[in-house]
Design a protein around this nucleic acid. Structure first.
Length: 881
RNA sequence: GCGGGCGUGGUGGAAUUGGCAGACACGCCAGAUUUAGGUUCUGGUGGCGCAAGCCGUGGGGGUUCAAGUCCCUCCGCCCGCACCA
């Protein structure tokens, strides 16, 4: 499977100490699980067990796994193995998010075909993942770049097209003029294309969109039902969807231009209409474009705005700028008054209607704009308890609630009442109406890239957009493509795009854009239910397995992937492919894996493997001996070289050690720090557990439960059954670090029981075996290989494996203590403890507490006015004076 | 600016949800075993104090018999969104 590592690391004792050889044990048990089919489930099982679908976000096949993957897949595997032991039929699949830009970059830079590069990477990463001992059903594996997958995606798209959920429309996009492609917002850095370095332009292009906005209300409302999602993620999605209540209203131009008679505005503050002093439109607004056609100065202003864009950095640096068009609009309530129309760089075409009315007194942006261009500032909202604001200059726009002034029919009304009154008047005048506005925009899925799923349509001069007929699916990517030229290789291909129109038979052109790779990842979890199906999903299999009960991944997907998937599953519901609303019932977002960073004397970053840290904390270069500066603990990244290769860790310490350490360090939702000392500690524990198992196995124990146990044996049994209770609770609540701590405690309890007792050899031997076997099963979700080795040591002729055994049952009566320690307080301060039988009566406990010497001393001569008794926990005496 | 989260020993963290703060681990100290050891084992380890004891969960205030936990207030750090009208 893998080469035996060559390493000089030898942390184990010589001599006769037993030694757990993970290098042979881990591959052995991995083979045994595979041969027994422990982790395979069928699409439509008939086993009577409840289903449980646990899924980790599938990886992009970059070629190597990193520690983030190790953490992600270890967390998922703990859940999968635990749920399986609890009697669930567990679906736990793995696949590859295989389309994307890096493959094309590799093709350009290394002259290797994207498909070759991708499949090689998949093979390498599959081998690495298999070494981790994950309980995956590998029979379900697929890659999104396989036509068997993306062909089904094309079917889904065509169904959506027929259902009106997909459409082609013009929109403003980020355009890289050098690479000749659209870029996602994330690929624009400081206004420049991330590859070409060219200034990105705003360009109006015809692109494919999925109508996610149709589902905006439902996507928002359903967040409330996702009670097993982190609050943080739900809030982020709610903000992204961005519902706001307001009004749309029309402002008539005093003199219409070229058929444009009015400008529509969206506002959340119709109550402040009487404070208006200007109207502003976005540089991309149709009216602005029209004006630019006649006015070179306006055209120049718009071009400048377009060049600067609206990136965060640009906004910080750019002050508000405007261009007075000379046009004027009438006030909707007072048609005799009119206001200037400006083109303003701070108005966004994408939000609302791309036009606003400016009310400087009650909006900070409008105020800054008005100050710059000498426009009036007219307060119309009086803050509660404030004097008339017209007395002085307005320092800062007041955007809070208050009482209306100078606002005609609204005078004296409270802000919220005034909003309703303004909307009613607008509607009555036929100028507009109250509306709900959404920040969410339709999802542009067209990409001018080769390595993606072809969009299955044909453009015909006669028939327009024609879907590729079913029998011609999948539309396969051509293999003979050239990356010599910038731009989209599909568009450059000599023959691929030239096809006959399926409708009229005339020469037509195949769509050469491919889908955004987020489309691929928006339904893969549904495909896992029936990965071989000739339909996108087998409806029965989807009904059986969906939704995903527990999804696990990084917080970086809080919006994009998770929101797209929530939309996609609804679109699939609408087109009859699934019967559910939400794809992911439970979501867990893990923290990042971090590490110290190191820099050499010349400032270059060094890998942890190049650095030796001495006992005094001084760091030196392993080979040159030069001084090394220890930097901050940061997320592992290639650029800082503070990465640790999981493969090397598994070579040196084994998969169980890596899994155990990554779980033990801290709660999984927080960032964890990878440390050499931590790994070494985890490794020592694996050895300790195995030695313990050997010592337990050496004591012959009878098959039958002994009649009596000594107190030492009974205490061990109690510790074991308590561990079952506490580890179970910890795993249920994702407190894996606590589960680890409880197992450490059980190991110590077993070790402590080793002292020989003459009176109860049989009982102790039996109790130690029981405890050790319980421990093997409790640690199996985290250290599955070691658990098997321990079990085999205890029961050499066992017919089954831990992976096939149920979760241990706690004997609750045994786990319950018969004696408890009760804290005794005087005036709320701890003054002593007493041991009492569990559930002892209040009067008995209070009497014993009062008799406790130190307590008795403190109560001497005092009058006790109150006695608090919390059963089995605490007693508190309140004394007078 | 808006929204959210977090502050507990030298370190990561635990605390049955208002009931013995510091479980468990790392590190450190002491001792034992070993031909050395990133080996194994034993004991110790919040601070001050010889001690009884006092102090202690970012600071201050409050509620309560009892507060890491609840309330108010301030400080610090982290994350997300952001000319969203």
């Amino acid at each position: 499977m893998t080469d035996q590592p060559v390493t000089t690391f030898a942390p184990l004792p010589e001599g006769d100490a037993p030694r757990y050889d993970f290098r042979s044990a881990e591959p052995h048990w991995q083979r045994a699980w595979a041969m027994a089919g422990c982790f395979h489930v069928s699409d439509l099982p008939d086993d009577g067990r409840p289903k449980y679908y646990v899924l980790e976000m599938f990886p992009y096949p970059s070629g190597k796994i990193h520690m983030g993957h190790v953490r992600n897949y270890t967390l998922g595997d703990v859940v999968a193995r635990y749920k399986r032991a609890r009697g669930f039929s567990v679906l736990h699949p793995m696949g590859w998010d295989a389309f994307g830009l890096p493959a094309e970059n590799a093709a350009r830079e290394r002259k290797v075909h994207p498909a070759q590069w991708t499949w090689d990477n998949i093979a390498a990463m599959r081998a690495e993942l298999k070494r981790m001992g994950l309980s995956l059903d590998w029979e379900r594996e697929f890659a999104t770049c396989d036509p068997l997958y993306y062909g089904q995606q094309q079917r889904l798209f065509l169904d959506m097209l027929r259902a009106g959920l997909a459409e082609r429309k013009e929109s403003w996009v980020n355009w890289d003029p050098v690479d000749g492609t659209v870029l996602a917002n994330e690929q624009v850095i400081d206004g420049r294309g991330w590859r070409s370095g060219a200034l990105v332009e705003k360009k109006k292009l015809s692109q494919w969109f999925l109508r996610i906005t149709d589902y905006a209300p439902e996507l928002l409302a359903a967040l409330d039902g996702l009670d097993r999602w982190p609050e943080r993620v739900r809030l982020m999605q709610a903000n992204w969807i961005g519902r706001s209540e307001g009004a749309r209203l029309r402002f008539d131009l005093t003199e219409p231009v070229a058929g444009i008679g009015d400008v529509e505005v969206y506002t959340t503050r119709p109550d402040t209409l009487f404070g208006m002093s200007f109207l502003a439109i976005a540089p991309e607004h149709p009216l602005a474009s029209h004006i630019a056609g006649q006015n070179p100065a306006a055209a120049a202003f718009i071009a400048e705005c377009r060049r600067l864009g609206t990136s965060e950095a640009a906004i910080e640096a750019t002050e508000k700028q405007g261009f007075d068009t000379g046009l004027r609009v009438r006030h909707p309530f007072e048609p005799e008054r009119s206001f200037p129309v400006w083109i303003a760089n701070f108005v966004l075409m994408e939000y609302g209607t791309g036009a606003i009315f400016g009310c400087p007194a009650h909006d900070q942006r409008d105020l800054e704009f008005a100050r710059k261009y000498g426009l009036p500032v007219v307060p119309v909202v009086l803050p509660p308890g404030a004097a008339d604001p017209r007395q002085g200059a307005v320092e800062k726009a007041y955007d809070g609630p208050g009482t209306m002034i100078g606002s005609g029919f609204m005078d004296g009304l409270a802000t919220e009442v005034a909003k309703a009154a303004a909307i009613a008047r607008i509607a009555q005048l036929g100028m507009g109406s109250g509306v709900t506005n959404w920040r969410l925009r339709d999802w542009g899925v067209s990409r001018q890239r080769y390595w993606g799923c072809p969009i299955p349509v044909i453009h015909c001069a006669q028939c327009g957009v024609v879907p590729v007929p079913d029998e011609q699916l999948p539309v396969r990517l051509p293999e003979d493509v050239s990356f010599d030229r910038p731009g989209n290789p599909l568009d450059h291909h000599p023959t691929w795009k030239h096809v006959a129109c399926p409708a009229c038979g005339q020469p037509a052109r195949r769509e050469t854009d491919t889908f955004d790779t987020f489309v691929d990842s928006s339904w893969y979890f549904a495909r896992f239910c029936s990965p071989k199906s000739s339909a996108p999903v087998d409806r029965d299999a989807a009904d059986r397995w969906m939704p995903v009960d527990q999804y696990i991944g990084g917080i970086e997907h809080a919006i994009l992937h998770l929101l797209y998937s929530r939309f996609f599953i609804r679109a699939m519901r609408q087109t009859g492919h699934v019967g559910i609303d939400e794809p992911f019932q439970g979501l867990f977002t893990q923290g990042m894996v971090t590490h110290e960073s190191y820099r050499g004397a010349d400032g270059r970053w060094l890998y942890p493997g190049e650095v030796d840290i001495q006992a005094d904390g001084v760091a030196r270069h392993r080979e040159t001996g030069e001084a090394v500066t220890i930097g901050r603990v940061e997320a592992m990244s290639k650029s800082r070289r503070n990465t640790v290769d999981p493969g090397a860790i598994i070579d040196r310490f084994g998969a169980d050690t890596a899994r155990w350490f990554i779980l033990s360090d801290n709660p999984p939702e927080r960032d964890m720090q990878w440390t050499e000392a931590g790994v070494a500690g985890a490794f020592r524990f694996t050895q300790r557990v195995y030695r313990l198992a050997e010592s337990v196995a050496l004591m012959a124990a009878s098959a039958n439960v002994p009649d009596t146990f000594s107190s030492v044996a009974l205490e061990l049994r109690r510790a074991a059954h308590r561990a079952v209770v506490s580890v179970t609770a910890a795993l249920e609540s994702f407190a894996f670090n606590v589960a680890v701590a409880r197992i450490y405690a059980l190991a110590t309890a077993i070790a402590d029981s080793e002292r020989p007792t003459t009176d109860d050899a049989a009982g102790l031997a039996w109790a130690r075996r029981e405890a050790m076997e319980i421990m093997a099963r409790l640690m199996a979700p985290m250290m599955p290989h070691l658990a098997e080795a321990v079990y085999k040591k205890l029961v050499p002729d066992a017919a089954d494996m831990v992976a096939q055994r149920p979760w241990p049952e706690a004997d609750l009566a045994l786990a319950a203590a018969d004696v408890v320690t009760i804290a005794v307080q005087v005036m709320g301060k701890l003054r002593g403890t007493i041991a009492m039988p569990t559930g002892a009566a209040a009067n008995a406990v209070l009497a014993a507490a009062e008799a406790e010497p130190n307590v008795a001393r403190l109560l001497e001569g005092k009058r006790v006015v109150k006695r608090i008794h919390v059963p089995d926990r605490v007693v508190n005496f309140v004394v007078a004076g």
